[in-house]
Design a binder for these strands. Structure first.
Lengths: 227, 227
DNA sequence: TGCACTGATGGCAATCTGTGCCATCTGGGC
DNA sequence: GCCCAGATGGCACAGATTGCCATCAGTGCA
């Protein structure tokens, strides 16, 4: 464990479409591992699951597992981070569409949040339910909570450059940072609140519904949004 | 690692004063280990430090080390969490002093933040510098970052009941939650920003100075504070 | 003060984690 | 069809964690 020479790729941040067969296989393998880990974690909890078992269920060697993920807990990262990735992609799109400093950043944020938290299809709905399951399991398991913390922090960090792009060059880096933190927290708290309830993924009490309120409250005083 | 039967005590949350000799010794031991870990982490980084070495420098057996901390990185937790603990204590005091629903929650928060981030003595100043060192080391070490995430999240969770007490019974739990998140983020970002700079612990660019701004921006839109 | 009890610590063994290294296999380009 | 770069598997090993048991030191009580 002494010196780290090379790390596995980040658990998310889809910057390019998989093109060749090899690329697609690798993406599939990562997802296989992530699903295997999520299943086992949900069944017995992360502590009672070994990396070896995850690898076996995913159909890869232990060594390969560690080429994809730096740790056992990391393996569920892609599932938990998926929503955030989609959200950031939406934001970046919105920025590209309305290219110009004249866009209403607050409105763009709110739209992207609503859209990314409203399940577009069955797959998206399942993803939310998986998240709910992991968060409930996390209530009992510190290691799993740690993964959730990490995913959210990384989501916040990756949001910074996106927001900086939307806000333009004149923006104070600290203000951008605050906006990223506020928006990330708004989503996090909305999702956590929903996960703790029995509300469905759509309608009153849904993540999208709750986030509308949390986002407004947390971003209401931000200089970056013109407060 | 299979089944976890009992965990070490939380790394912080001083709810009672150490009374007997045993209690005081345990507190001292925990601090000895934390300091030893911080020294070694700062010297060579967490990856190049073994738990064995931390234990040896702290003068305890490896087995004892793991009775105090769940992992190697966790060992620095008490040092990182100290500031938050002090801050929450200040808040609770303020609430007890001004007992009544008539207090200006925003002002109380701001006062407590300023006071807890302004080093009262040499020890407090050193604590901030240690934090800076750890945050810089965390830049290179994912596990150390995870500790920082955890410390902040736990600080936020512990803040919730304190704020609920200050806000009174009528407060919406979600609003309280948002206030806790906003305040915690304000402090976190202020400290992180300071740690990344070369600013001294007092004056312009100090944590207290930065936090004044971050707190105002993040709490400016909160319903709990009357926005 | 002296005894019994409870909890803290050390030491040891065993399991699991995470990484370096090398052999083999496979898609992709020429 | 041949060659190369990258992906995977297998193996060994240092280090991380934890269960278990023996010992020792405060604490409470007679």
């Amino acid at each position: 464990m002494r010196y780290v020479t090379s790390y596995p790729r980040p658990v998310s941040s889809p910057t390019s479409r998989p093109t060749g067969l090899t690329e697609r296989r690798k993406a599939a393998t990562q997802l296989d591992i992530a699903r295997a880990a999520a299943e086992l974690f949900a069944e017995r909890g992360p502590d009672a699951t070994t990396a070896e078992e995850i690898a076996r269920r995913a159909g890869v060697a232990l060594r390969t597992f560690y080429r994809y993920f730096r740790s056992k807990q990391d393996a569920v990262g892609p599932l938990l981070a998926g929503g955030g990735d989609r959200w950031r992609a939406l934001l970046a799109e919105a920025g590209a569409a309305t290219d110009g400093p004249a866009l209403d950043l607050g409105a763009v944020l709110a739209d992207a949040v609503r859209e990314s938290l409203t399940p577009a299809d069955a797959t998206a709905g399942e993803a939310l339910e998986v998240t709910r399951g992991m968060l409930r399991a996390a209530h009992e398991d510190a290691a799993l909570r740690a993964v959730w913390y990490r995913v959210n922090q990384e989501s916040e960090e990756r949001l910074v450059p996106v927001l900086a792009g939307l806000a333009g060059d004149g923006a104070d880096p600290l203000d951008v940072r605050l906006a990223a933190a506020a928006a990330t927290d708004a989503i996090r708290i909305a999702v956590e609140t929903w996960a703790a309830s029995d509300a469905p993924a759509e309608g009153p009490g849904s993540p999208a519904d709750l986030a509308e309120d949390t986002l407004r409250q947390l971003t209401g005083g931000l200089r970056l949004l013109g407060a």
